[in-house]
């Protein structure tokens, strides 16, 4: 049950991105979760609701993009069709032991935000302020660079 710790971390990453859009409200976060990421999507969703509840992001939606791992034949290159959670032993065409690839994603892809009213139609002043903010931001050491 590390999904709770993960949801808290995810919320921190979201909040950092959100901080660049003062007054904006978080509507949804889209994440990529791989089959070999050791994360259960439903548990992550419940945990997300729990960590968002009662805070400024209450009601923000978590959209999970699921990435299945692939089983591929190292000898003939065939991709094996399989059920989620079910693994095949050998290649259907040549019998070789299949190899498993991919499915390790655990990534925040993007946010959907609702901009503050003042940002909808920026006045010249507000636009200039934001420009200055951007400049300050890029000169500051960025802790959340990928």
């Amino acid at each position: 049950m590390h999904e709770l710790a993960l949801a808290e971390e995810l919320l921190r990453v979201c909040a950092r991105s959100l901080a660049r859009h003062p007054g904006a409200r978080l509507r949804a976060a889209r994440v990529a979760v791989g089959e070999l990421s050791a994360v259960e999507p439903d548990l992550l969703r419940y945990a997300w609701e729990a960590v968002c509840a009662h805070g400024p992001h209450a009601g923000a939606e978590l959209r999970i993009e699921w990435h299945a791992a692939q089983q591929q034949c190292p000898r003939c290159g065939a991709h094996a069709e399989r059920e989620r959670g079910g693994w095949l032993r050998g290649c259907a065409s040549c019998g070789a032991l299949l190899q498993i690839r991919g499915g390790r994603e655990l990534e925040l892809l993007d946010l959907e935000i609702e901009l503050a009213a003042s940002q909808d139609a920026p006045s010249c002043d507000a636009a200039r302020d934001r420009g200055r903010e951007k400049a300050a931001e890029s000169s500051a050491p960025e802790e959340n660079r990928v």
């Binding site: 993960l6 971390e9 995810l10 990453v13 979201c14 991105s17 959100l18 660049r20 859009h21 904006a24 509507r27 994440v31 655990l106 990534e107 925040l108 892809l109 993007d110 946010l111 959907e112 935000i113 609702e114 901009l115 959340n144 990928v146």
Partner: peptide, 10 residues
Amino acid sequence: KSQVDVRQRI
């Protein structure tokens, strides 16, 4: 509404 790209490992 606006979309913000993040692309960062959680």
